[in-house]
Write a protein that binds this DNA or RNA. Structure first.
Lengths: 239, 239
DNA sequence: ATAGATATTATTGTAAGATGATTAAATTGT
DNA sequence: ACAATTTAATCATCTTACAATAATATCTAT
């Protein structure tokens, strides 16, 4: 019998468990999912818990459930792939290069424009938060603390989203976090020396502080494009 | 007693009803929500239906629910504002200029880059779908059919997202649909003649057909930037 | 009086059982 | 072979009961 983690309440745990399995492909459109009754048995929980989990996954676009037809995994196109849980579940396995490319292709749309907005509209307080993140990142590079470096890197990029003062950009924070985690998770992402990485981040920050939207946008574009070009080249070699 | 629409099943309808009220601010962080028991009474449904609706809204980040504390509306920052239901509910009222600006600021990140990707990676079939949408749009303009024009306009922009061949761009289709609906909904969006609108769309399409990513990106940027500049100016005047 | 422990109670969490509604699939009749 | 009908698997809904949680009130010791 499957074992559930012990945090949260039962339907939340069921949601996590089933969501993970669906996103990782254990349950697929072909395989389908067991019926409510079978899930109750397999996990040793009541129908209430199973049904509430099914409802939550339905709300995230992962499954649909109808009488006589059972619980069916939806086409991936229907998944709410920007939902924070779905992003989290997708991070369970090691991401492929193709997936890293998808993340970067999206980031290269969002983040340069976010930097531009941050330069135009970001409050001094929010810009200070970006600067603080960059300082922490530099310290972490000095001391060779990879984990702290990643945390600060994430704070830097998310700080810019917040400084955009636009709800939709702010909402991309979980996406950005996931994308950055994924790129570090994938060992091939070692690439160039981390020194000019700090320098490149610094250029973005300076442009924002100078309230220069164009330069902020371009600096951020270059920063992400470097990573994207690297990935695209690796993908070429692979084929 | 509140009345529910008759489509779908009961918990779906409850979800729609409550979701709409939350997004429109009838229930807020201050006002809070009634308890499960009270909701059952008000809508004349069982706890099962109420609880399943609560779970779905929880999955969309709109509310949280804990023993003794009741059902609480989450901070807007937690809402899954790119969820198709949440987008739909947010479209219930007439959008303010500030909201239209937010939409356009996001579109100006996504769509130019999507056009660039479409030029690089879009299949001939998907590019043909974009062209077909533009043709329908031109016809609708000729015959003065505003509704058909909007539908074709939406198909054009969404067609480009599909042609990007990137899951994250494709996922933005509901957002783009909502943003376009909102801008038409708002009467002030009449702006320039629709003739050069077709021409401007044509430039984007031609660049994509010519497999020229840079030109595709720039053409789309200009197209959206025109609307954004217009809105920003209106906002200035308003203050 | 005040701080800290304890009891109360409102609210959600979980379970189980019963019946209704839906619809895919099997059966039947032509 | 095809259409109409029946069957049965599965989800949908309601009800009842009790457990778990946590905010609030109450009590106790200092």
């Amino acid at each position: 019998m499957a074992v559930l983690e012990r945090n949260n309440n039962l339907s939340q745990r069921m949601t996590q468990e089933l969501g993970k399995l669906i996103v990782c492909g254990e349950y697929s459109q072909q395989n389908g999912l067991p019926s409510e009754a079978e899930l109750c048995e397999q996990y040793g929980v009541s129908r209430t818990a199973v049904r509430e989990a099914v409802k939550m996954l339905t709300a995230k676009g992962l499954i649909s459930s109808r009488p006589r037809q059972g619980i069916r995994v939806m086409d991936e196109e229907e998944w709410n792939i920007l939902d924070s849980d779905v992003l989290k579940w997708s991070l369970e396995g090691t991401p492929t290069l193709a997936v890293l490319k998808e993340y970067l292709q999206m980031r290269i749309a969002i983040e340069p424009e976010a930097a531009s907005l941050a330069a135009r509209f970001g409050t001094d307080e929010k810009i200070a938060a970006i600067e603080s993140a960059l300082n922490r990142m530099a310290e972490a590079v000095e001391s060779g603390n990879k984990e702290a470096e990643l945390a600060a890197d994430i704070d830097f990029h998310i700080g810019i989203l917040y400084a955009s003062e636009n709800r939709f950009y702010i909402h991309m924070r979980d996406f950005t976090r996931t994308a950055l985690n994924a790129s570090v998770r994938s060992t091939s992402q070692i690439k160039g020396g981390t020194n000019d990485l700090i320098e490149d981040h610094g250029k973005v920050l300076n442009a924002i502080k100078a309230r220069n939207p164009e330069r902020a946008k371009n600096s951020m574009f270059l920063l992400i494009d470097e990573a994207l070009t690297f990935i695209e080249q690796k993908l070429m070699e692979q084929q």
